[in-house]
Simulated assay, not measured.
Amino acid sequence: MPPAIPAQQAAARHLTGLVRFNAAPQGLAEQWLLGCCGSRRWAERVAAHRPYPTLDALLAAADEAGYDLSKADLDEALARETAALPHPDAPPAARTALGAALAAYEASFGHAFVISLDGVPAGERLNQVLAGIRSRLGNEREEERVVAAEELRRLARSRLTRSVAGS
């Protein structure tokens, strides 16, 4: 039998994590999901539709539940988010710039800045966050809610994937 290749190993980890998620009691599954998206309704809905045959099926259900968030659900999820802090080794000027940008964003929109950084190399993340804040500060409140909701869905997908793989 040939040795497992990385893609097969990742698939095996996802399957093991998915089996655990599917078998978890409802309350535990919801708590697990709340770590991915802070909307209680979203977590209840995704947990209620178990078992999921594949990670892709779980992610599709998470997306669908994310698109159905009410204003109150989105507010709850955004209230549970915290802005990412720069790496401690980031230059002081960069930490200051990020702190000021995050404060301006939160003052304008009333919630933490959310952005998915999947696929962005670690060395480029601070610049990506700063550029995202700068570009989104010009949004109208409702336009920004739409953007933030999409970023929250993307974050939930990546958190779910990591959570299932690491469970």
Rank of each mutant, 00 (worst) to 15 (best):
A24W: 04
A12G: 08
D89I: 06
R95L: 07
T96S: 13
A104S: 13
M1V: 14
G27A: 14
S135W: 13
P25K: 10
A165R: 14
T54V: 07
A11I: 00
T82W: 13
V146D: 13
L160N: 03
F113V: 02
S39W: 02
E106C: 04
L74C: 01
L85Y: 13
T96P: 07
Q9G: 03
Y52A: 06
A12M: 09
A24Q: 07
Y67I: 07
A47E: 02
S135G: 10
A57L: 10
A57D: 12
A83C: 10
E142F: 09
A84L: 15
Q9H: 06
P51E: 14
L152N: 01
E64H: 06
A100G: 11
L102W: 12
L78P: 00
A57V: 13
A61L: 13
A65P: 01
H87P: 04
E150N: 12
T82D: 13
A156K: 01
P3T: 10
R125N: 04
W32S: 11
H111G: 03
C37M: 07
A57C: 11
D75H: 12
A94I: 03
E30Y: 09
N127Q: 15
N139H: 14
G66Y: 00
G132H: 06
L102R: 15
G138N: 09
T82A: 14
L117M: 11
A107W: 04
N127C: 10
L15I: 09
R45H: 10
T82C: 10
E151G: 02
A48M: 10
A60R: 15
R136F: 06
T161F: 08
D73I: 05
A100M: 13
R80C: 07
T82G: 11
A12L: 10
H14C: 11
L152H: 00
E143P: 08
R50W: 04
A57P: 05
